[in-house]
Design a protein around this nucleic acid. Sequence first.
DNA 1: TATTGTTATACTCTATAACTATA
DNA 2: TATAGTTATAGAGTATAACAATA
Lengths: 163, 163
Amino acid sequence: MTQQNRIEDGNEPVTKEQIIESLSNIEKSAGLYIRIAELKIFKKLHQLTKESEITEAELTILRAIGLNPGLRQGVLADVLHIKWPSMTKLISSLELRRLIKRVVPTHNRRSIELFLTDDGEAMVEKYGPIYKKAEQDIFSMLNDDEYQQLETLLRKVSGWVND
Amino acid sequence: MTQQNRIEDGNEPVTKEQIIESLSNIEKSAGLYIRIAELKIFKKLHQLTKESEITEAELTILRAIGLNPGLRQGVLADVLHIKWPSMTKLISSLELRRLIKRVVPTHNRRSIELFLTDDGEAMVEKYGPIYKKAEQDIFSMLNDDEYQQLETLLRKVSGWVND
DNA sequence: TATTGTTATACTCTATAACTATA
DNA sequence: TATAGTTATAGAGTATAACAATA
């Protein structure tokens, strides 16, 4: 807070472009780009989230359950890199809103299987396309080929290489 | 985390691989992959951060200042998609630790220019390679060509296309 | 004893808005 | 009035550990 030595007048100010240019030149920095890209996506989605009844994370969970009825939440948490306590909260909230139901199977009463309710399915139907459109906007600067490449590379990096 | 293979009465349990497979089939989902990749990176870096005197975000800021002496923090905040109040905290912390100095130029006393101290430069020298090594690990499943492609594509997505 | 999930707590991040000061 | 940065406060997200119930 204390003022310091006022030296060197007449410096040209550093512009955004110069910073980007210089940071880009730090050897390998895909990690930095991923972070920036993620922040951009997050901003966009956050905007959407404020206007909708559901977040993108919740929608992903609903989709996963819809595609895999009977899914256990622990398994889903591991796949999506979400900690169990966080998943508990998310699932509880979704259940409160009647979007999913929990079923305790008789053969193993310590696990809980998840299913979509009709409302849950309707939610996926409704917001799926909206979030898809948002994603298309985010990646609109890539052509189809490039998008495909990016997807493939990111799948490798994320460890989701099941082909 | 590893056992899933007990196939019990009627419905077989859903495995991680099945979830990944099914989620992968949701048409366009690079956003999801970016998030997962980011989480992986974050985990790795967090590990490093706990053991070092500086976080990756701080190191990026130091690097940016080192490469652009006289940088203003508002400009840097915008480039890195960090809000001003957050940047204020980060910068204050770095100043307290004597890694940077703030200089108020005489020609515009409401702006503040940033410079690295010798300690700051030493910090970049010390931890730069460590974080670089971590990044190489994270992307080790890509060959050089693939890494290059990924970097180029992500730069486009992040809006850092200055070429 | 190991698995599956929950609760409680604390800590980091970030967002927002109101504020100071300079121009 | 606009710009540059700060402070204050509150909210979301996540981590950790301790806990309960089932196997």
